[in-house]
Design a protein around this nucleic acid. Sequence first.
DNA 1: ACCTGAACACCGTTCAAGT
DNA 2: ACCTGAACACCGTTCAAGT
Lengths: 212, 212
Amino acid sequence: MADLAARRQEILDAALALADERGLDAVSMRAVAQRVGVTPMALYPYIGNKDALLDGLVDRLLANLLPTLRLDGSWPQRMRGLCRAARALARAHPATFSLLWSRPSVTPDAVRVVDAIYQALLDAGVPPAEVPRVERMVSTFVLGFATSEANGRFRAGSINPRGRRGQFAPDEVPAHRQLAEWLDKDLDLDAEFEADLDDLERLIRAIASANA
Amino acid sequence: MADLAARRQEILDAALALADERGLDAVSMRAVAQRVGVTPMALYPYIGNKDALLDGLVDRLLANLLPTLRLDGSWPQRMRGLCRAARALARAHPATFSLLWSRPSVTPDAVRVVDAIYQALLDAGVPPAEVPRVERMVSTFVLGFATSEANGRFRAGSINPRGRRGQFAPDEVPAHRQLAEWLDKDLDLDAEFEADLDDLERLIRAIASANA
DNA sequence: ACCTGAACACCGTTCAAGT
DNA sequence: ACCTGAACACCGTTCAAGT
């Protein structure tokens, strides 16, 4: 039984490494099996099928988040630490991270992470009735930022901002024109993430004091 | 040349319908070709390859957003209208919508949508230097909410909230315990989305007045 | 100009068999 | 108990050929 769990971990580790190195499309039963040094069919007793393997990959990912949880410190420190850890996870495993949207994890580890956010929001003074909604708002945004960064969404069309505007007639995209000066600057996503966290914190304080 | 574009549209329409009906995995070159009534290889001159077909699908989706853009009304009306349209799009085409994370669109239509958000933020009084960041924040959140709802992420583990807490020792997830009363209520995602939009609007006003 | 058909190198998975 | 190997019904894509 311990061997079964160990073999399962070995398989998931191989799959995660494969996803990191060659993308999600390269994670085939055949390729994972070869990496483990076994025939494709030998994986099935341990992981069920391809679908369950991807679920397992998501759980493996979230397990990495748990050790970063801190119980000491102020609520903004704890919340920001968790948000930064999520972003770091997306950078470390960009291909696998996207699976979090389609394969939500309900493992004990995932619940513990959510609990940490709940606790931070309660400590911030958010009314209990609002906490679940605000948790979903915060985690949705952080997941979105991390996914966008990992997938290059934030750089869409900003590689050549002049080209982006160039294809339009004058005043067809007036706001782009008005913002030309700032759109030409290149992105500092570290700074942007911190600024976003500042805004989230500000919003949480506003929600807390509006209902105080 | 007009025929070529028309045939391309026909192919993308078939692919979108297939994704709606049977999911993204069912969108194979062979299945799309069969729906169009042609051999798989006949698609290639019009769409390039499978990868380009998925890019085309994203563009087809965003084209649906453009007609909903309104130039009249206050900035919150315009912004909320666009956010609600994005959410409606995700509900109409859940499988395809997820592609927006991995295949950012840079078509003229996409730029026009971003321009509408820029304009709303400028009208709100957000300092120009902050507008691009705040646009990314808003669109990341809305994209995230819509994707989460479409993929069932918000209902993860909330199907049976008692079971979710039941597997933990007392005080292992203290915040869940403290929030038990509110976690047992079922979700009203229409109301939640509107509450989130209220918060976004509040945040935008705060950013505007902080730099006024 | 537009489409077809055979072929190639891949998939996930079933089933019967080996040790 | 654990793994293999052949087989089946799928993929995307190349290439040569048809009309």
